[in-house]
């Protein structure tokens, strides 16, 4: 079976920014994503040990190359300054690329 190149965007951010990220995805017609809770450490200090709202989530989005740029740009522009957030991009292959268009 043939595998097709797409992009995987991984965002780790505070749980209260999850809504914002998903909103941005929606604005760019990306409806699929996977998300789970996590703890972590970074510039904003240790997160996840105290109140529920101070946890992190990790959000993974498979998306086509052509949407990647816009989505990351908007996340960076609107969320980087105010929230605990980290983002990285990697190359992955999928079987049904049309599912992620």
């Amino acid at each position: 079976m043939k595998l097709y190149d797409v992009k995987l965007l991984s965002v780790t951010c505070e749980i209260l920014a999850q809504k914002n990220v998903i909103e941005i995805l929606g604005k760019h017609q990306v409806s699929g994503y996977t998300v789970w809770e996590a703890e972590g450490n970074g510039d904003k200090g240790i997160r996840g040990k105290g109140l529920q709202n101070e946890k992190n989530v990790k959000i993974e989005v498979i998306l086509p190359q052509n949407k990647l740029q816009d989505v990351t740009e908007e996340i960076a522009r609107t969320l980087f300054s105010d929230y605990a957030i980290v983002l990285y991009v990697s190359d992955v292959k999928v079987l049904r690329p049309e599912k992620f268009d």
């Binding site: 209260l16 109140l51 709202n53 105010d82 929230y83």
Partner: peptide
């Protein structure tokens, strides 16, 4: 201190 973070993080993220 429970409701505050939830509301204020969204409303006044700065």
């Amino acid at each position: 201190f429970i409701a505050a973070p939830a509301v204020l993080r969204t409303a006044i993220p700065q």
